[in-house]
């Protein structure tokens, strides 16, 4: 098995559903990073069978709302001095502002520039959100 060193200071994003790792990696812009990062795919996992995992050797700002939208099952571990300082379990956010785009072509958001369009969770299972303007359901 491939081994990656433990990190001294940074973030470990764990329990990523297989296939979502690459999406999160791209979303965080890690492909452009000049610090050490690792994306591991298809790691054996007791909990999930297999999983993806990302290690970031840097203190970066994480938008947990967006992470929760991509994969609400992930765990974010904050590492300091080589030890786990904080463990954050993500959930699907109840409200999302400025991240999702309404997919209804008749919605006003396709006509005007509107900042911070709010979406409200309506179906947790399907990860469906309702647009505040046209009520259409949309998912990431």
């Amino acid at each position: 098995m491939i081994r990656i060193d433990t990190i001294k200071k940074g973030i470990v994003i764990d329990h990523i559903k297989v296939g979502h790792g690459y999406k999160i990696f791209n979303h965080l812009g890690l492909d452009k990073s000049d610090y050490t990062v690792a994306l591991l795919k298809n790691i054996p996992s007791n909990k999930l069978g297999s999983k993806d995992l990302i290690k970031i050797e840097n203190d970066i700002h994480l938008d947990l709302t967006v992470l929760g939208l991509i994969d609400p099952g992930v765990t974010v571990n904050i590492i300091e001095n080589g030890i786990k300082k904080e463990k954050i379990k993500l959930t699907l956010p109840e409200r999302v502002k400025g991240t999702l785009k309404c997919k209804n072509p008749r919605c006003v958001t396709t006509l005007e520039n509107i900042d911070d369009v709010e979406f409200t969770l309506v179906n947790r299972e399907k990860k469906e959100y309702r647009c505040e303007y046209c009520d259409a359901r949309t998912s990431m």
Binding site: R106, V108, Y133
Partner: peptide
């Protein structure tokens, strides 16, 4: 009245 949905809310 507007053909786009959500215009009155905006």
């Amino acid at each position: 009245r507007h053909p786009k949905e959500g215009v009155p809310r905006l």
